[in-house]
Design a binder for these strands. Structure first.
Length: 253
DNA sequence: GGCCAGGCCCCAG
DNA sequence: CTGGGGCATGGC
């Protein structure tokens, strides 16, 4: 492992994923079909021998090099980096990310988490202790728009249906250049530039991605009025994550 | 009890 | 292509 330091609270609750729970220091979720349970103290032992978890938590990411680069850019970036130095960008299942960020539009994080949970309980597989895996596209193959509306998916229900129908499109993404990959994703209904870049960043680890939500627009206007994502290259995605989390938890934008 | 939420679709200019 | 209204739902 290149980087055994990770800020679990920041990483798991910064809005890049929606399936984790933390109660009294115990973290739980389902990763790659199995229930994972650990505390700050048992985290590294939990990873030992589990290559898929090491990858999921991005423990081999080049964070020291990236952070050194970003810190040098400007004082705002330096502060954001240092405040959340252990923030990792997870390597999540692209399908799960696609669904989550379709759900995210005009929505709040608390409710996205609730909708995520309902999907697992309705269509996922039981994995013990009352937990369910996130449903695969195959497991959702036969759901109807009305099923999804009954689950509280609202106007996003037809978007989810299109994502289910077109899920195999995800397989082509890794081999495509960034812009082509983004436009390919945007052929799915309910996937625009922001959701598409979230999928590329959180599902495919494309560091060029720079999701511009309402928070990031305010941040850019306030601190980087003449800049765009290129300013943070080649770590735009990570910079976005630091700034987003920093603005939401620390500094009034 | 309104307000608003990690936007996108759709339709008018 | 740019701008603005509408959108289901529930936490606050």
């Amino acid at each position: 492992m290149k980087d055994s330091h990770i800020d679990l609270l920041a990483t798991l609750f910064c809005g890049q994923c929606f399936g984790w729970k933390e109660e009294q220091g115990v973290f739980q979720s389902v990763v790659n079909g199995r229930l994972i349970t650990f505390t700050e103290d048992t985290f590294l032992a939990t990873l030992a021998g589990n290559g898929d978890l090491i990858r999921y938590f991005d423990m081999d990411g080049e964070y020291e090099m990236a952070k050194a680069h970003l810190r040098k850019l400007d004082p705002t970036m330096a502060k954001a980096v240092d405040r959340f130095a252990g923030l990792h960008i997870l390597n999540q299942d692209p399908w799960e990310v696609l669904v989550c960020f379709i759900l995210s539009q005009n929505n709040n994080i608390a409710r996205i988490r609730q909708m995520y949970c309902r999907l697992t309980e309705a269509y996922g597989s039981p994995v013990g202790a009352g937990w369910h895996s996130f449903p695969t596209a195959a497991q959702m193959q036969d759901v109807s728009e009305e099923d999804l509306r009954r689950l509280g998916m609202g106007f996003r229900a037809p978007y989810l249906l299109d994502a289910i129908a077109q899920n195999s499109l995800l397989e082509e993404i890794p081999s495509l250049p960034f812009d082509e990959a983004l436009h390919h994703l945007m052929t799915i209904r309910g996937v625009g530039p922001k959701v598409g870049q979230c999928i590329l960043l959180y599902g495919f680890h494309r560091m060029e991605a720079f999701p511009m939500d309402t928070w990031m627009k305010k941040i850019m206007l306030r601190w980087y009025p003449t800049k765009d994502s290129q300013y943070f290259a080649p770590y735009a995605g990570l910079a976005q994550q630091y700034l987003f989390h920093y603005a939401r938890t620390e500094a009034p934008v």
